[in-house]
Design a binder for these strands. Structure first.
Length: 163
DNA sequence: AAGGGACACAACCGCACCTGT
DNA sequence: GACAGGTGCGGTTGTGTCCCT
């Protein structure tokens, strides 16, 4: 199947968003929601592709986003979830309220990967793996630091329902 | 004070999956 | 069942800032 590139149209803006564009996007979504990302920028009068709008909204403009540094608890949760789920950042983000997959991905690549590497090179390999192994025995209701029982694995068929 | 490397984060790209026809 | 279009995800890149020498 051949797919036209998302932003093939000439004249579509790329790069950092301006406060004005943010404002337009936020007010439009608050008013009408985001039923169709592809059509949204056209209707809202933004010179952006739908993909870009979606990313901006999800990673930055959403009202429930928690900005600022990750707490130690959040970092520990990311490490554990990553050991269980792998690079499924959206699944990890779903278990950390207010955090986005992009943010988690960035934190992982900048802080945690390095920290984990340091830890494994200095400590015995059994420690964290055993914790994960014991948790993996009960994959349906992992209790994290926020004390919320969280389902860990979604069958592929349920993936679309998360959207 | 200046230069360069490291770090942090926002944004883009391409692919896979899902859904409607 | 095949195809086409839309959406979401993960990997990667670009750029601004910080820190060390």
């Amino acid at each position: 199947m051949v797919r036209a590139p998302c932003c093939e149209k000439m004249g579509l803006k790329k790069g950092p968003w301006t406060p004005e564009e943010d404002q337009i996007l936020v007010s439009f979504i608050q008013k009408y929601g985001h039923g169709n990302w592809r059509a949204l920028p056209k209707i809202a009068g933004l010179l952006r592709c739908g993909k870009s709008c979606r990313l901006r909204w999800i990673n930055y403009l959403r009202p429930d986003i928690k900005r600022g540094n990750f707490t130690r608890e959040e970092e520990e949760a990311i490490i554990k979830l990553h050991e269980m789920l792998g690079n499924r950042w959206s699944a990890i983000a779903a278990r950390l309220p207010g955090r986005t997959d992009n943010e988690i991905k960035n934190v992982w690549h900048t802080h945690l990967k390095k920290r984990l590497k340091d830890q494994t090179s200095t400590s015995s390999p059994a420690s964290s793996a055993s914790i994960v192994a014991s948790q993996s025995a009960e994959p349906e209701n992992i209790i994290l630091h926020n004390h919320l029982p969280v389902p860990v694995m979604f069958p592929q068929s349920q993936k679309s329902q998360l959207h």
